[in-house]
Computed example of a mutant assay.
Amino acid sequence: MVYQHIISTPGILGGKPCIKGTRISVELILETVANGASVADIVREFPQLSTDAVQEAVRYAINALRSERIIDVDIAA
């Protein structure tokens, strides 16, 4: 999937996915949503973000989790 607003650069935020042209990470956007903020609240708090960018950050996270694989490993003590 191609993202217009999401970028990951090793020298910025340790390579965490963030909104292009900012140091606002997808993680920060998700934390803000988890704390009850709406997309409109986030755009008001971070005026450099567009509604499309915030929505794409959420979609990015959904897609990352969708492709995540959990491997159950039993470790002997």
Rank of each mutant, 00 (worst) to 15 (best):
G14R: 08
A61K: 10
Q48T: 08
L49E: 01
V39G: 03
I29E: 00
I62L: 11
C18A: 11
I7G: 02
E68H: 13
K16P: 03
D74F: 15
A57M: 11
I7H: 04
I7K: 06
G11I: 07
A53N: 09
A53G: 01
A34D: 14
I75E: 13
D52E: 15
R44Y: 09
G36V: 09
Q4D: 12
V2K: 15
A61L: 05
Y60N: 03
V33L: 14
Q55C: 15
G15F: 05
G14H: 10
L65H: 13
H5W: 05
S38R: 05
D72W: 08
R59L: 15
I75K: 13
P10A: 13
A64C: 09
E56R: 08
G14Q: 08
T32C: 02
I24Y: 00
I71S: 14
V33N: 01
S67T: 11
C18N: 13
L30K: 08
S50F: 03
I42K: 07
L28F: 06
I19A: 09
R69M: 07
A77G: 14
S8H: 04
I62W: 10
I29H: 02
K20W: 00
R44E: 14
K16T: 10
E56P: 02
L30R: 09
G36A: 09
A34L: 14
E68S: 11
S67E: 11
D72G: 02
A37T: 01
E56L: 03
A76F: 15
S8C: 06
T9Y: 06
S67I: 11
V26R: 04
L13W: 01
R23F: 07
V73D: 09
R66D: 10
I29T: 07
L49H: 00
E31C: 09
P17W: 00
A37G: 00
A40Y: 13
I70L: 13
S8W: 06
L65F: 12
V73M: 06
V43S: 03
I75H: 12
E45L: 10
G21N: 00
I7E: 14
A77E: 15
G11V: 08
G36M: 05
A37I: 04
E45I: 06
Y60K: 00
S38E: 03
L30H: 08
T32M: 02
K16Q: 10
V2P: 11
D72F: 10
E31H: 14
L30D: 07
E68Q: 13
I71C: 07
I75A: 12
T9E: 14
Q55K: 15
E45G: 05
V43N: 04
A64V: 15
N63E: 14
A64P: 00
V58P: 02
S25D: 04
R23D: 07
S50R: 10
P10T: 05
K16N: 12
I24K: 00
I6G: 07
S8E: 05
G11N: 11
G14Y: 04
V2D: 13
I75V: 15
S8I: 02
S67F: 06
S25H: 06
R66T: 14
I12W: 01
T32L: 03
H5I: 00
T22K: 02
V54I: 11
I42M: 09
L13Y: 03
I70C: 12
Q4K: 12
Y60G: 04
L49N: 01
L65P: 01
V58W: 11
A37W: 07
G36D: 08
S38P: 03
Y3V: 03
A61W: 05
A61R: 08
H5S: 02
